[in-house]
Design a protein around this nucleic acid. Sequence first.
DNA 1: CAGTGAGCGAGCTTCCGCTTGACTT
Length: 780
Amino acid sequence: MAKNLLIVESPAKAKTIEKILGSDFEVKSCYGHIRDLEKDDMGIDIKNNFAPRYIIPEDKEKVVKELKSLAKKSEEVWLATDEDREGEAISWHLCEVLGLDPHTTKRIVFHEITKPAIESAVKNPRLLNMNLVNAQQARRILDRIVGFELSPVLWRKMSMRNSLSAGRVQSVAVRLIAEREREINAFSAESTFKLEAWFSAHDTAKKAVTFKAEGHKYKQAEDAEAFLKSCIGADYTVKDVQVKPAKKSPSAPFTTSTLQQEASRKLGYSVSKTMLLAQKLYESGKITYMRTDSVSLSQTALDDIKKAIETSYGKKFVEIRKYKNKNESAQEAHEAIRPTYMDETSVDDSDTKRLYELIWKRTMASQMADAELEKTIAKIEISTNKEQLTAQGEVLKFEGFLKVYREDADEEDMTEDEGQEGMLPPLVIGQKPEFKEMKATERFSRPSPRYTEASLVKKLEELGIGRPSTYAPTISTVQKRGYVEKRDKEGVKRDYRVLLLKKDKIDKETLQENTGAEKSKLFPTDLGLVVTDFLREHFNEIMDYGFTAKIEGEFDEVAHGREKWTKMIDHFYNPFHSSVETTLETAERIKGERELGVDPASGKKVVARMGRFGPMVQIGDVSDEEKPRFAKLKNTQSIETISYDEAMDLFRLPRNLGVFEDTDVTVNIGRFGPYVAHNKLFYSLPKEVDPYSVSLEELTPLIAEKRQAKEERTIKVFEKEKIQLLRGPYGPYIKQGLRNFRLPKEQQDKAADLTIEEVKAFIEEAKANPPKKAPRKKKA
DNA sequence: CAGTGAGCGAGCTTCCGCTTGACTT
């Protein structure tokens, strides 16, 4: 038994540290937080100065038990949780649970897992910082209050059966997406005519090369045309040539958020995929910790990187840099994300290979020299008018960090013309390059792009909302709640005009381009839009983009001992709680209703609104004598944008197509998409079949085919008991009513011979031993 | 699997931030 027990948060870290510290220390992990607020009654005694009631969650009981017994046997327990607010609190909870005295227990911290860092930490233990712990308690309690008071307001005011939720982080994330969508809907594109001219000149090898020069932008086609006309027969002379050196610097090494952004742009990974792969790399010891907001690297790492750059590219390419965090809310408990050993340029595992190489390259580049460029700007005069054309070129003089890594820009950060600039042939003042042609092309302004998962994370981080460990879960929460959907959008065709001046003649032509196409972007659902509006109307403070930053400032006051946490929470709670009460009393139910027009057949109003089962359109009112007609919106439609015609179109279903084999055939769109119903059986329609126009003749072969497929899937039917034996993708299984049950493996071959008694026994058995999933929390 | 569309109001849901597992419908 080792004399000392040292507790860290992550088990992978524990292993490494144990090796460093040797036999005097046993290093164990507590797997993050070991206690949390009880759920009943919020777990807070509001009236008793917000006294928290902590419990050990079921899934933490095992580790707590183990730590308790080890603590008892050890001479001394050391707390080495992360050095940030949450880490400090975890240490305090450990004291409470393990019965350690917070006034004497040794607390140590390090920001990097290296021998010198850990040995120096052990030599310089400190005590728990209760102010920091209290700042964490304030954070935890405020989040619980906001979440557990706002969510029930939604349950009361929304007529949906979903388990809706609201919170300091998720609700603002949805708001960002909702506002962006409305910005895009309200956007009207303006067009300008961009002027480009092509010339030819000789390069140093006396070869003719074509280069481009740009002119003014014109708002009107007439003006662009007038300019082209004025250039007919002109002479073009180089007026001015300027050569300027320029530099590009590498980006900082990866944090969680920048890793997610680059993996999304370069590899097309979702944030959750990135985190899953990074976790694997971390657990196998290939990279440092992947949930971090720090851009700094340890000295050992810097030495290692320097050596790697020197070996591969030479001393000239090394430039050691200290990066600083821009973000004030960063808590920097860890290093930046980097390979553990730079001489491992790749990994064998095919899953994680691409992500590892991305991290490796970014880490290398971060300590490499600037790229040096030479920018050339040439002005070209036109003999027939006063305008000038500008040609720009760029030559890479020294690659520097670009040798290993090029960062991709966000769509959002790019200005319109920012493409890679090519090389210019050498130009001198007075030179007359050969004119080829000149073009005025109509270009449209674009709205801000919809968020991707990664660009949303970037935005949240900028606002200081959420933490590295919560970015991925937050994105999945807002999707799970049905506020946001990730999907593609098809573009629409748009005409644009081009005017071409060539050989002293002007040609006009209209071309087509595709615009507004989006891939894997975040769209708000109608639910997300109406809930956001509601929360904005009644809880504007929480929904404010600056709310988190504001309360973070107050948590800091607590952390520095300048304010009591209970006082801070009290200040927040009273006004917040009273707006919860007034909202519950006075606010109307959330409907999001929008009037679209009048149905000519009945003379009744047509409205789009939220119903119990989602967005729908309705003709007439429930108070009318005749029942209103309802139709569900398609999932790409929205209450806010659906037109009258599109709404009326939805009422064309269900369609009765006539009789086939003595029974009616109807088509409709159900929960699982378009289907055809015939003789009490339902068949999904293939994608290419349009339920609005399909005919009976087209459908009958489909019905026959689907019916046969269904029969082939059926092994045996017990009509009376309503039990079926079916063949599924995982082999034979039992179906009773709506429920499926597994068939024991050894029975699968003789499924066809089973009797009803045997099948019933299997159902009982399956019911008694339900397949184990992630254990759902039971109520005690 | 293929309905409903509101309101009786049983009894349920819900937050953010730390950490990894267990798991095939």
